[in-house]
Amino acid sequence: MNQKPARAPLPPHTAEENIAYIRQMLGELRTVANNEGADMLRYMIEMAYVEAGDILAGLRPMSIRGHRDPAIGMPLKAAGKIKF
């Protein structure tokens, strides 16, 4: 039987390396979308690209879990009658 030699497991990547990889791929996707004239798609990819750059630069947290706006979840009051 031909058995393949066991490979050493790949080292785990850090979150920073993963975000850098995502940013690189987004840059390539942005170019493809631009070449195809998909302006809205290119714009959304660009926003994700900028977000990834901000995370890498330490300007934004990677997650917003636990950082909720206290106004979220508040019940809305009916406007009632409008007086002119």
Rank of each mutant, 00 (worst) to 15 (best):
A8Y: 07
F84T: 06
A6Y: 04
N35I: 00
A38F: 11
Y43D: 14
G37L: 06
G73L: 00
R7H: 04
P70H: 04
G58F: 03
A38W: 06
M47Q: 13
R7W: 03
R7C: 07
A57E: 10
L76T: 10
M62P: 04
Y21M: 08
Y49K: 07
N2Q: 05
E16D: 15
V32Q: 09
E17R: 03
R42G: 12
R65P: 01
K77R: 14
L59H: 06
M1R: 00
R7E: 15
K83V: 10
L29G: 12
L26M: 14
Q3I: 09
G27I: 00
V50L: 13
R65H: 12
A38S: 13
Y21I: 07
A52L: 12
A6R: 04
I55M: 11
D54H: 13
L41T: 11
E28K: 03
P9F: 11
G27C: 03
Y49D: 15
M1G: 13
R30N: 10
A8L: 12
A79Q: 12
N2I: 14
R65N: 11
R65D: 12
I64Q: 08
L41H: 07
G27K: 01
V50K: 14
R60Q: 10
I55D: 01
D69L: 02
M25R: 11
M47I: 05
Y21V: 01
M25D: 09
P11L: 14
R60T: 07
P61C: 07
Y49P: 02
M62Q: 07
M47D: 15
A33E: 15
K81R: 11
Q24Y: 08
P5D: 02
K81P: 08
E46S: 15
Y49L: 14
A71W: 04
I64W: 09
G73I: 01
I45D: 02
T14D: 10
A57K: 12
A15Q: 06
D54N: 15
R30P: 04
R60P: 04
K77Y: 09
A8M: 10
G58I: 02
E28P: 00
V50S: 11
P12S: 04
A48V: 05
A71M: 14
H67W: 05
Q3N: 04
G66D: 00
F84W: 08
E36K: 06
K83E: 07
N34D: 09
A52T: 13
T14F: 10
L26Y: 12
K81N: 07
P75M: 02
I72A: 14
L56I: 12
A33V: 08
A20V: 05
A15C: 02
N35H: 00
P70I: 05
